[in-house]
Design a protein around this nucleic acid. Structure first.
Length: 494
RNA sequence: GGUCCUGUGGCCGAGCGGCUAGGCAGAGCUCUGCAAAAGCUCCCACAGCGGUUCGAAUCCGCUCGGGACCUCCA
């Protein structure tokens, strides 16, 4: 089995590289979490699902993973680094509550969303406000190393100075000179920065700002990019394995992160950078400012104007995984409906696994199927191809059920454990039972067996009218009856 | 304007030099009282124009679309 053949596309080099942890079997994984100033939307969710699968697969491969996903609860400014208000503080003003109430409210709501989409909890979920001291220390270190300067109680990273020795732009492929040309007209406006590309790593707070902390430079707040550098260093070390986040964070956020880490003395902070691509709606990036974002609740209830109906979180998770994380995915009713059907087919095949007949010989090759799945996952977490392989297995399962293929008990065990492992543990899908019915499962089963027996009697007497009446009326209640060779089975679908 | 990505069958989406995924939809057949489910078969596409090659959806060039980033964004 190809356990150690994992390849990861490294945004830093633009190539797929063999994954070689710095200190095996340990793996440090850092993912930029949400800024908790409002609800996360499905685009955010896609990124978290991407890295949830990365986390799950690394665990499956046997690595000892420490997964850190931060909560940004201060420092993320509305506008550019000089003029902007803190996003959380602004939201607090609008909602007329304490900034920390905003933080708590949307952190809670984020956690509900992570449960809904079956995201594994990170091992550490640090918050920016919980690491003010460490952030101040890093600012001091960067100043000491000569890569930052203070102006009026704010501290800025000196990009020009840094670029003399290091490659600012190595991740995003940007050249300082080009940056200079293009944003020239923004230089005006009473900037404190020496150079337009400099960015705040500590920002002086105004008198009426509520969230602020004492520092050697007076009361202020840490810069947005700083927290990730600080917390990744603290929990994963000066150099760690994988740093993930959305494509839109590549520049400036991740570029600045590298600069800060290097500027404070960490030579190569991240070995593999991974960037998930955007979720689009009608071909355009889903974003709040464009007004095309979907909230998880709008998706589930189907209340979003662009949706015809609601879809469960697992259908959406499955839908996302049918594309590679480095491609954009376009969100549409049609695509979602297709995913819903396919997902149902996969799940019913998995349920069939429990009742499959076994034989003395297998006409199917299970180990090959398993190898295929590992192979595709090893290829930069290619979930759509993995799912394609799983559908090959669906065909096998159905054929065994039909009797056109046979399987030994050993192979069946293998198949079962493989499916449970890949579908539930690695892809993180769940079989969604209808909760309202399953809470009365025994009663429902008894009731339905009674009805099916009555209908069976009608059928035996060739009383088709009664048999069809029962089936048709149940259908109106969203209960479908299917006659199979082994008798009728029933299903409830919302 | 700069940098980069991208254009695949009715739709969604893999593949990234030869072996031409998968899902959804559609058609036919098998099964069946009918229906459903399931299976089998069919639908064999790569924006356009050139070039490289024995061979290109895959590499190169141009043209035309679409998108992202360029200090709010996962």
């Amino acid at each position: 089995m190809t356990i150690n053949q994992l390849k990861i596309y490294n945004s830093l080099t633009g190539k797929k590289e063999h994954f070689q942890p710095i200190t095996p079997p340990f793996v440090g994984l850092y993912v930029c979490g949400p800024t908790v100033y409002n609800e996360v939307h499905l685009g955010n969710v896609r990124t978290f699902i991407t890295f949830d699968v990365v986390y799950r697969y690394l665990i499956r491969l046997g690595f000892k993973v420490r997964y850190v996903r931060n909560i940004t609860d201060v420092g993320h400014l509305v506008d550019d680094a000089d003029a902007g208000e803190d996003k959380i503080e602004k939201r607090a003003r609008l909602e007329k509550i304490e900034p920390m109430e905003i933080v708590q409210k949307y952190t809670n709501s984020f956690h509900v969303v992570t449960q809904l989409f079956n995201l594994k909890n990170p091992d550490i979920e640090p918050s920016a406000t919980g690491h003010i001291i460490e952030q101040i220390e890093m600012v001091e270190q960067i100043i000491k190393n000569g890569y930052a300067y203070e102006v009026n109680g704010s501290v800025y990273f000196d990009v020009k100075k840094y670029a003399e020795k290091y490659n600012y732009g190595e991740l995003s492929g940007r050249k300082i000179d080009e940056l200079l040309e293009q944003t020239r007209d923004e230089l005006e406006g009473g900037e404190e920065k020496h150079f337009f590309a400099d960015f705040a790593i500590w920002k002086k707070a105004s008198e009426n700002t509520i969230m602020k902390w004492s520092s050697p430079w007076g009361k202020g707040v840490p810069g947005w990019h700083l927290e990730c550098s600080v917390m990744s260093t603290k929990y994963l070390g000066k150099s760690f394995d994988i740093h993930g986040g959305g494509m839109d964070l590549k520049f400036p956020h991740h570029e600045c992160e590298i600069a800060q880490s290097v500027g404070s003395g960490n030579e190569h902070p991240v070995k593999y950078w991974m960037h998930g691509n955007m979720l689009t709606v009608n071909g355009t990036k889903m974003s709040k400012s464009l007004g095309n974002s979907f909230l998880p609740v709008e998706l589930i209830t189907g209340t979003h104007p662009l949706l015809e109906k609601g879809y469960s979180p697992m259908i959406v998770r499955f839908f996302f995984l049918q594309a590679t994380y480095r491609s954009t995915v376009d969100f549409s009713n049609e695509a979602l409906k297709a995913a819903e059907k396919g997902y149902a087919r996969l799940m019913s095949a998995i349920q069939l696994l429990e009742e499959l007949p076994t034989s003395n010989t297998s006409t199917v090759t299970i180990p090959k199927l398993i190898d295929n799945c590992f192979e595709s996952m090893n290829d930069d977490f290619n979930t759509p191809v993995t799912i394609a392989h799983l559908f090959d297995g669906v065909k096998i399962i159905n054929n065994i059920k039909n009797g056109s293929e046979t399987i030994t008990i050993e192979d069946l065990q293998l198949l079962k454990s493989h499916y449970y492992s890949f579908v539930f543990e690695i892809l993180g899908l769940k079989n969604e039972e209808n909760t309202s019915l399953s809470s009365h499962k025994n009663e429902m089963d008894g009731l339905m067996n009674l009805i099916i027996n009555i209908r069976q009697n009608a059928k035996t007497e060739k009383n088709w009218a009664t048999a069809d009446l029962i089936r048709d009326e149940l259908k109106k209640l969203s209960i479908t009856i299917q006659d199979t060779k082994d008798g009728a089975i029933w299903n409830y679908e919302k």
